[in-house]
Every structure is written in structure tokens, then in C-alpha cells.
Design a protein around this nucleic acid. Sequence first.
DNA 1: GTATAATAATTAGAGTTCTAACAGTCAACA
DNA 2: TGTTGACTGTTAGAACTCTAATTATTATAC
Lengths: 145, 145
Amino acid sequence: MTKNSSFLENPYSDLIRSIAWKAKAKADQNINALGLNSQQGRMIGYIYEHQDSGIIQKDLAVVFERKGASITSMLQGLEKKGYIERRITINNERQKNIYVLPKGVELIQDFNEAFGEVEKSITENLTESEKDTLLSLLAKVNQNL
Amino acid sequence: MTKNSSFLENPYSDLIRSIAWKAKAKADQNINALGLNSQQGRMIGYIYEHQDSGIIQKDLAVVFERKGASITSMLQGLEKKGYIERRITINNERQKNIYVLPKGVELIQDFNEAFGEVEKSITENLTESEKDTLLSLLAKVNQNL
DNA sequence: GTATAATAATTAGAGTTCTAACAGTCAACA
DNA sequence: TGTTGACTGTTAGAACTCTAATTATTATAC
């Protein structure tokens, strides 16, 4: 077993992990001022954009790459705080449709601005060409995982 | 407020988040068979490689981009399970040096293989040129965040 | 129509992560 | 030397995440 630093042996995953973490931290920082965190902000935003199509918890689990129990836990918290409500669907008693309440709706623009800030800090030092390249390489990697 | 999918508005952070998550999931999957998770594996590996230089918890917090309380919690768990031990340092009673115990040492090669697998699945569909480009762009982004 | 399999959400418990506050120890300074 | 500020790790509580198990409901097969 050599004593080389493990942080130099897997540079791709290390960099991606670090970038993702920093991006999350930055988003959290921006959204904390609103009394929520970045996950909650993303989820509220997504629910709002899809509530008209009758979104249920299971859909969120898929989109956000989480297990059902995690979604239940998150939504319970948001519901308890008055940002969303869940209603048993009319045609299937096992399912709950999710809706953003006014208290949540009024924050959505702020969420989007916060996330836009993070996106900008990812891309702002890149040329247009670099941006295109990075995006297509990331998409390729994502496709393969 | 438009009804556009928010997942198309921030493609960079969305892709990076998803890749990081999938990479973590893959690493977890590989390491779960050993009775631990990827975070624990990375931490044990790092401790092992730096224990001779007298590493303390605060160092781990910096390197792993975590707060002190998180490190305390993780190390308590690993210590409880017999993978590591923490000893108050000789020259400063506030600090604890951390050491990997034999039970942890014997897993290190497996950790490295697991992380190597993940790294490979990130890069394996890329050309050499693409790999170089991706790495330098990721480094650039990471530097800026 | 009935029995079984599948589905959706939930709970309990363990682990990670944070914030805020705390206790003990060391360093710096007067 | 004594006081104060800084440092290191810890605790408590809340939130997110998972696994495994559960309940009620719906879909499917016969």
C-alpha cells in the first residue's frame, strides 16, 4: 500500500464532488436567507412547475434521484412549514398530488435567481467554446453513469 | 413565472449534481459490501495515508470540506466499530491524532479499487483528448468556486 | 368475482450534516 | 504571572438520506 495521496488518484470524481459540494453550499447560502435550503428550493420550484399535471411523490423521487422515504420526509417538513400541501388524488387513494401554497409561491423567483447565480459562478470564467465543450462532456459522462 | 422546466435552466449545476450523486451511489454500492459507505472509505483511506504526520480532526474537516461536528460524528461511528482510534496528542491536549486500526487497514485496498472503478466509469467513454479537456475545465471551474 | 401481486406512502432506526452553544486547553499579551 | 482570546473537539437538536418493514389500495391474473 503506497502512501500516495488518494486525492491525486481519482481527480475526476474528486473534482466533481468538490464542485458539486461548493455549488450546493453557495446555493444554500443564497437561499438560507429565505429560511429554506437549496434542496427545498429546488423541490418547491419543480413542484410548482409541474403541479398542473398532477405530480405525485413518486415522480419527485425519480426526478431528484432519491428514495421514497426521503421525499416523504422532505415534503412533511415543507408541509409542516406551510410551503406546500399534499392532497390524496381523486382517482387513486394511494397517491397524493402536491401543490405549492402562496407562502412557497412567493419565493420561487428568489429561488430561481439564487440558482442562476450558482450557474453563473460555474460558467463565468469560461469562454463560449469552453462552455459548450464542458456541457457536452458532462452530458456524455452523465449518460454513461 | 414561466412554466419551463427548471432542469433546463441550469444545465451545468444539474449535470454536475447528478454525476456527483451517481458516482457516490456507485462508490457506496461497491463499498457497502465491506460494511461501510463511500464517505467512510474515503476517510479511512486518507487517515491511513496521513496518520504518520500526526493528522487531527480539524485537518479532516478542511480536506473533506465538512464542519467539525460532522467529522466528530463520523469518527465516533468509525471508532465505535473498531476501524480507527483517536488518541490525545502528546503536546496538545485539545487535539486528537487519528489512527487506522488493523480492521480498517485490511479494507484499504478494496476501497481504492472501488474508487478506481468509479473513476473509470467517469472516464471510460472519453477519448484521451476529451479526458484532458474535461479535467482542465473542471479544475478551472473548481478554482473559481 | 376472487386471490395475488404490485403500488404509493409511511414509519422506525441509523448515519451524515449543519448550527449554536459549550468545556477544556493553549497562545498571546500586559 | 494572570487574563483574555483563540483553538479543538463535543453535544443537542433539526433536517436529509437510506434500509427494511408495514399498511392500504389498485392492478392483474385466473
